[in-house]
Amino acid sequence: MLERESNLKAWLYLAPALLLLSVFTFYPLFNSFYLTFLVGYNYLKPDKIFEAYTLVGNFKEVLSDKLFHQALKNTVVIVFVSVPISVIVSLLIAVALNGIKKLQGTFQTIFFLPYVTNAIAVGMAFAFIFNTNYGLVNQFLGWFGMDPVKFVTLGATWGTSMIALLVYTIWGGLAFKIMVFLAGLQNIDKQYYDAAKVDATPRSRVLRRITIPLLSPMIAYITITSFIGAFKAYRTVIGMFGASLAPPGLLPKDSLITIVGYIYSYIYDTAPGAISIAAAAAVILFVITLVFTFIQMWVSKKRVHF
């Protein structure tokens, strides 16, 4: 009796959240799966909202689309370059920050600021940093006698614009990672370091044999969430290159498109059936992300201590 009553109460408390989740998360989730099986879907035609069912037709179309190949390539580059670099760099910064005593709070704030700054604004700032004529990067390269490189302006290649995008992506991802690592580092019992000190452990060995293993749960968490986040990259491209998703003049158009960008472009395409293409691409992205997450969890189970 009592149990039933408390069950009822629990559901009552959960109801508001469940209601909102049902409308805005669960329904769209299942609906997008459903949409992938439709041909010629057009919600403006109430009498005949779609033409036929198909099992893999939309997937086939996505997978044979040149633009999707481009999007997949860009996304994979962003994921596999930016995530490892930003995890390593943020780990080193966090270790360094943890090591200083004076002004630690100040530096913590400075490193956290990018997290609360608008990504589009930061993207514009980065676009300026990489500007051919006025940008800091090209001025810096000029000191070494190098010619200005076109990163974001007319004449930029896929390679140079991707470099600029990666630098921005890495930088933008640092703040949160540093904070998480710093919290993890501060949770490590100081006695491990005292013990290491008494045993004459060199600093590099302390980092390699004590700090990183003890931080491994955090590192695993950050790596998994960063991979998921990087697969969803889109905001950074918009922030740097605007809605055109490419530096001016670079052909083909949308040359820096990501998978999420691809999905967006089909959502806003009014042609019948476009929404099903978007849904199919979303499901593909979902599967890719899922597979990667499982692989990582499997790896971290073997490598992460505790």
């Binding site: 019992d189 006695q191 491990y192 005292d194 013990a195 000190k197 008494v198 045993d199 004459a200 452990t201 060199p202 060995r205 044999r209 004590i210 293993p213 003890l214 491994s216 201590h305 505790f306």
Partner: peptide
């Protein structure tokens, strides 16, 4: 590290991710 002391902490401070052998060998590897 130059004093030549061995210290046993109150909560032992054994490295949780290392085996007993690795723990004992750690000072020697250093």
């Amino acid at each position: 590290e130059h004093r030549g002391i061995g210290l046993v902490f109150q909560n032992y401070a054994l490295y949780p991710h290392m085996t007993v052998r690795q723990n004992i060998m750690f000072p020697l590897e250093n």
